[in-house]
């Protein structure tokens, strides 16, 4: 059964269309990689799925117990965050706020969840560290832990390894892969590193002038044909 089903989506802002005729679906446990050149609309697609941007056409359905609010998200970093004074713990536990019900303060369950997420991401020792003083890889782990506080169902990751050095990049990919394989988290990841995407992903969505959606094996064929013709 599919968790997210997008039918004939048209993406864009206002009257400006970026992409149209986009259809794909994501099932529980899938690892979908979204690839495409810079500016092709990958981030826009992710934001549309998250409900941050309205689609210009088409539909997005959530099912299998998933709702738009049951999604964990790792955004591309913004400038605001680069000089934001916040401790690792403050950021991680803020992922619990979307869990419904208005509690002005964090509950015991929230705190347990945050501790567990930090443990899983191997950042327990950084609990009281200042976020803006961490390395890029550590920052991404913090944001991943926050996303895990929001949900254990599905993670949407927007270029999680951008700006990381090769060693840290490999660690990050391994971590995401283990979340997918061992914890059963559905992963949708934007990446412009197609080779790495092909190594881990179960499905590929290629956007740009020609749109492709299918399994990894099908994508290899698609790529070979495209390069050949």
């Amino acid at each position: 059964m599919s968790q997210i089903k997008c039918k004939n989506l048209t993406l864009g802002y206002g009257s400006q269309e970026i992409l149209s005729g986009l259809s794909f679906e994501v099932n529980r446990g899938d690892y979908l990689c979204i690839v495409g050149s810079n500016g092709s609309g990958k981030t826009t697609l992710m934001k549309t799925v998250l409900g941050l941007t309205k689609p210009l056409g088409g539909s997005i359905e959530f099912s299998d117990g998933l709702s738009a609010s049951g999604i964990g998200y790792l955004p591309q970093q913004t400038d605001v965050q680069r000089d934001f004074p916040a401790s690792v713990y403050e950021i991680v536990i803020s992922g619990c706020l979307g869990r419904g019900g208005f509690h002005p303060f964090y509950t015991k369950a929230d705190k347990a969840l945050a501790a567990q997420a930090m443990e899983r991401m191997d950042i327990k020792g950084l609990k009281n560290s200042c976020y803006r003083e961490l390395s890029g890889g550590q920052q991404q782990r913090v944001l991943l832990a926050r996303a895990l506080c929001a949900t254990r169902d599905i993670l949407l990751l927007d270029e999680p390894v951008a700006g990381l050095d090769p060693k840290v990049t490999a660690d990050m990919y391994a971590l995401i892969d283990s979340l997918n394989k061992n914890d059963g988290v559905t992963v949708i990841m934007i990446s412009h590193d197609v080779d790495k995407a092909l190594r881990y992903a179960s499905h590929i969505l290629h956007i740009g002038t020609d749109i492709f959606f299918g399994t990894r094996a099908e994508y290899e064929v698609f790529k070979a044909n495209r390069n050949g013709g």
Binding site: K47, L52, Y73, T78, G98, A150
Partner: peptide, 16 residues
């Protein structure tokens, strides 16, 4: 306030 100041998009995306 912390959450929407630090990352409004994440807050929205996770149902806050």
């Amino acid at each position: 306030i912390f959450s929407v100041t630090f990352d409004e998009n994440f807050a929205k995306a996770t149902g806050q």
